[in-house]
Design a protein around this nucleic acid. Sequence first.
DNA 1: GTCTATAGATGGATAGAC
DNA 2: GTCTATCCATCTATAGAC
Lengths: 220, 220
Amino acid sequence: MAQSEARAAPEPRGAEAATKAAVFNAAERLFALHGFQNVSVRDITAEAGVNLASLNYHFGSKDALLFEIFRRRTIELSRERARMLHEATHRAGGKPSVRDILEALFAPPLKWADPASDRRISVQFLLRARSEGTAPMRDVLQNDVSHLERFAQALKTARPDLAPETLYWRLHFALGMIHNNRFAEFDRLNHLSGGLTREGDIPALLKQMLDFAEAGFDAP
Amino acid sequence: MAQSEARAAPEPRGAEAATKAAVFNAAERLFALHGFQNVSVRDITAEAGVNLASLNYHFGSKDALLFEIFRRRTIELSRERARMLHEATHRAGGKPSVRDILEALFAPPLKWADPASDRRISVQFLLRARSEGTAPMRDVLQNDVSHLERFAQALKTARPDLAPETLYWRLHFALGMIHNNRFAEFDRLNHLSGGLTREGDIPALLKQMLDFAEAGFDAP
DNA sequence: GTCTATAGATGGATAGAC
DNA sequence: GTCTATCCATCTATAGAC
């Protein structure tokens, strides 16, 4: 438990920072489950088992805390994706296949979404940030596309025959496939399929997504 | 202007219902643009140019108004999709192609999203409802999958060779492609592509989506 | 049906003691 | 750093006059 918290929260060195970490984790969890506007500072501090005023003491404000969680998780996810893309590029001698590029895009958030992962909730937080995020978050999502530019460039190298416009659209579609992996959408799909789709089986889901998206990129 | 409002709002027969229609349209617009929790009753009535109390008089509460907009637009969209699927089924003698089925799924919301359409804002409202919706909305989204069952059944008929599990996943991916068509995501894509992707060109976008998704369904 | 005025509740933030 | 008590802004909803 302490280890899990240590991995999930920012540098919990002394007993003092334990409070900060508890607030961070409780906030991420509640925000991911119930939405940003439906969770109050009182809810967070109660869940964390700390005093009401400690949130403002450690983070300044509710919005600043929200942004801190968003920033940290975004950086972590981008880094994992960039590392996978870099490795795939190296393995392929500079020109990875479309499937390898897509795997670098899909695998990190899917690995987080594993029921056994302590990042399971972080994915849901980031997905919420896309639609419910505050203005500073939207600014980051809007302007910081450098992380995606590497993927667009790799796709151009892999498929120089495709029109750039088509390529960007297909990247957009692939991203849409990931962004739809919210708890509520999984539940809806389970309800529709009568329980056939088991989103807990991450390797199977990754294969399904790669099969679909790779074929989509191969369309004429 | 009067005609446009007549099409978008509920039965504006007399001058009395004009207030109700104005509230309905202002609310849909503000909710779609700024999110459900970021728009107050005061914002809505101010935008509509009516008195603060009229919202509660005509709709009962803010949440009831929200649900009313959601219910109306959901029914309209499902009906358009069902009609297109029905026509495609009839044209194909009972067994429409995967592409025809996907077109019945994609085309209605894309038609609404046309810059020239007076439903442009309704799509954004419905997309917000998926993530920011109140509990009653989530219940509807969760439990009322009858509309999607017809599409799943049609896909099974078109591709009896595919495992049902695979088929449901691919339907989920196709839905994800639509759900990603939010203003913010379009802007992000435009920023990334340097303006190459013009989401205002609906026929071109529909073709891009159909090419990608059809190929995805054709994956082995 | 429309308006004003206000009740009633909630939530973010902080002052100040410890 | 932690806690209590409280301020103050904001919002929904309604009572009651017209």
